[in-house]
């Protein structure tokens, strides 16, 4: 296999990258200076070797526990449960949430062989039980079929621990168009309507 093929194959393994894009990336890198190529390679190696899941919340971090878990100014009585690391970034970007996080590392999907054992469920239960300061768990898994089932399952496990379990609200997107929303979304938006 030629070096060009080898590099293209590596790119093509990445999510969201097809054969053509992989080839384009390869030819782009062949044109850059060796210094630039090393910078990319070093960044990949450094990230791969130094970034680990936080021992407490599961977020990817260079220091464990992560900066969010060790931040004294954050509210330790509330934990927000998300599916994947990027979800933490999405919520952090709003600046609206001051509590802690817990990253499951996926969602229940029996068809893909993902059950509770494949997710960071036990570590969540450990964080919430015993002498824990946690008073509320916000379930922020995606509003997909699998995300909903994951939230239902976690609710069942968490409720007996005497903690308040909440689910992020669902409904119409801001700036959205009622006419184009799907039936279940509209039905739920009506069901969870609130007084003004």
């Amino acid at each position: 296999m030629s070096l060009i093929e080898r590099l293209t194959d590596e790119f093509a393994r990445l999510p969201g990258i097809g054969r053509k894009t992989a080839l384009r990336l390869t030819y782009h890198l062949l044109k850059v200076t060796s210094q630039e190529a090393h910078r990319l390679a070093d960044a990949i190696v450094a990230a791969s070797e130094n970034v680990r899941p936080c021992e407490t919340c599961g977020t990817f971090t260079e220091v464990s526990p992560c900066r969010i878990c060790t931040n004294e100014r954050r509210d330790r009585s509330i934990v927000c449960v998300v599916e994947e690391g990027p979800d933490v970034g999405a919520i952090e970007a709003t600046g609206e949430y001051r509590g802690l996080y817990h990253v499951l590392g996926g969602r229940l999907s029996p068809l893909d062989g993902v059950g509770p054992a494949e997710l960071n469920v036990n570590s969540l239960l450990d964080r919430v039980s015993g002498e824990s300061p946690v008073r509320e768990v916000v379930l922020a898994t995606n509003p997909s079929v699998e995300g909903e089932a994951t939230a239902m399952y976690l609710h069942r496990l968490l409720a007996p621990l005497g903690v308040r379990v909440t689910r992020i609200a669902r409904g119409l997107p801001v700036g959205g168009d009622l006419e184009y929303a799907d039936g279940v979304t509209i039905a739920e938006a009506l069901q969870y309507r609130r007084d003004l």
Binding site: L108, P110, L111, V145, A149, M152, R156
Partner: peptide
């Protein structure tokens, strides 16, 4: 989609808690 997932849980003989997580959907 939910039916496929729920049947996969049932086929695997998992706990009621795991099965009923799919019920509301």
């Amino acid at each position: 989609q939910i039916l496929l997932q729920r049947n996969a849980v049932l086929r695997a003989g998992e706990s009621t808690a795991l099965v009923s997580a799919w019920n509301p959907g």
